[in-house]
Write a protein that binds this DNA or RNA. Structure first.
Lengths: 166, 166
DNA sequence: AACAATGATTGTTGCACAACAACTATTATT
DNA sequence: AATAATAGTTGTTGTGCAACAATCATTGTT
């Protein structure tokens, strides 16, 4: 065996250590409390608003995006509508479908959610610039893979303890 | 200005990119679904079992760890007890206090939860070993800081939608 | 035109979860 | 000994959330 090539068990141990480290770091800087405090929204709803800021979605698309029964999507959108954050509109091509748009308040809430989620922990700001560059490059590689769904965060389907993606 | 030293705005942008990348990666490999499917537990309860596997905790300690009212901790422990995962025992020094221990089933559940959470995404296993080593080193640094609560994941206080970290 | 499928909604049922107030038992303090 | 504080629990109130079945309106298929 090539002595310069680590064994697969060494790879596995390194992968596990790296995963544990990044999980602890990201989980340790969870932003759900901030989302709750500033927006009175859970992560799931906040991420949905961010998604809707990009383009309106149908109820089916929303149900699929957050992986719930369509009736749950209907009720969830009802709650956002009562908050004045979204509105339902007609679909241009198909009268069965509705399109969910953000309101002005919803756009502002989505921008706040993005700001909260995008704000890096202070530890990153004081990291050695070479390490920071390495992180950025490595995660760009990891997120570009086909098994990675894409750079944007996905809304959680659960209500935890477990209930809400809130 | 020292041309070898990036400006603080460059630092901020790099920190933000790094943060977005790692958040997307960790969030994109969320293990809550697996925890739900295999253990019928949310992340919060699963992490509590992992914590209890290390040492029993009082109700107050549990309430503080998950940042809820003591009555909510009581009810949460009730639910775990009904599942046969924990039991309450007497405190050796103070009869006001109860100690929550894991049962055999609870220990097995905690081990399963740890296995689920510790399993790295396949993308990490095929990463360049130097990148993997860099990630491990950088996160060890990030997690060692005083602002970092420690390497182990912290149970989330919400029940999201938001309800349960499940 | 008739029938099948789709999209959204309503109603039902069930469950999880939280804070607050009040309570009892126990320990700490005076 | 009397009082204050702590620990855990119970009851109450409120909210969020989900799946399922059934329904109606609309579009797609035959």
């Amino acid at each position: 065996m090539n002595p310069d090539t680590p064994t697969s068990s060494q790879d596995a141990a390194s992968a596990q250590a790296a995963w544990a480290g990044m999980q602890a770091f990201v989980t340790g800087h969870d932003r759900r409390r901030d989302l709750r405090v500033e927006l009175d929204l859970g992560a799931g709803k906040a991420e949905l608003l961010i998604k809707l800021a990009q383009a309106p979605m149908t109820l089916r698309e929303i149900a699929q995006a957050v992986d719930v029964d369509p009736s749950a999507a209907t009720v969830g959108v009802d709650r956002l509508e009562r908050r004045g954050l979204v509105r339902r509109g007609a679909h241009p091509d198909d009268s069965r479908r509705k399109l969910v748009h953000l309101t002005e308040a919803g756009l502002r809430a989505a921008a706040t959610a993005e700001r909260i989620l995008a704000d890096p922990p202070p530890e990153l700001a004081v990291l050695d610039p070479r390490d920071l560059a390495a992180l950025t490059r490595i995660f760009a590689t990891l997120n570009a893979g086909p098994s990675s769904a894409g750079a944007e965060a996905v809304a959680e389907p659960e209500a935890e303890a477990e209930q809400k993606p809130e």
